[in-house]
Amino acid sequence: MTPNAALLLLADGRLPAGGYAHSGGFEPTARLQGLNDAAALEDFLEGRVTTSGFVAAAFAAAACAAAHAGNIGRLGQLDPELDARMPSPAVRAVSRALGRQLLRVITRIHPHPVLATLDPHAHQPTVFGAAAASFDLSPQDAALAVLHETITGPASAAVKVLSLDPYEVHSALARLTGLLDELAVRAAAHALDDPDQLPADASPLLDIAAEHHRSWDVRLFAS
């Protein structure tokens, strides 16, 4: 039986892992590029989920597979590879902070030996993958959960950043479900790749926006 309920638990934004404080680059992008409607949000989400979201999903799938195989060495190779795929130090720092928070939560709510083998500052996709494995979820599940968070985080933030109709925002999320499923399959296909062959899709404007955001004196979200 597929542990579907565990997947929902892991993907739930209410998991107390601090995700609510982040807009995934939406807050700075909205201001820098003058985004102001749900269509602009949807365009942002699609761009994010097919680039950095897809990379994160593939790494989560790879981490999940490595954790299932008990391949600790391979788990440890993923973080340096992720660093190389995140030029912005702000993006790297956020990914590691979210990873640390997630590791803290999963360690408390569902202790598992594989979690103890992770670097306490491991990137979020690495922790996500290992956490998924600890619930006996598949690499594709791990990828899907990460993709889900990639769009739901900025979407909830967008309602606070812009004056958007929450129904329109969720319509966009509903339209993206098919894309998410498709990306999850593609991401999971990389689960056993050599670490240096894992996806590296760039999102140059997100990187630049992240540094703009760090420099602001006043911001609603931490990223």
């Binding site: 992008t29 985004l35 365009d43 942002f44 761009g47 097919t50 680039t51 899709d201 999102s203 140059p204």
Partner: peptide, 16 residues
């Protein structure tokens, strides 16, 4: 990796 062009419409996204 950067992918642009009609086969990857989302390269025009505000995130990319």
């Amino acid at each position: 990796q950067l992918t642009v062009g009609p086969a990857t419409p989302k390269w025009r996204s505000s995130a990319v």
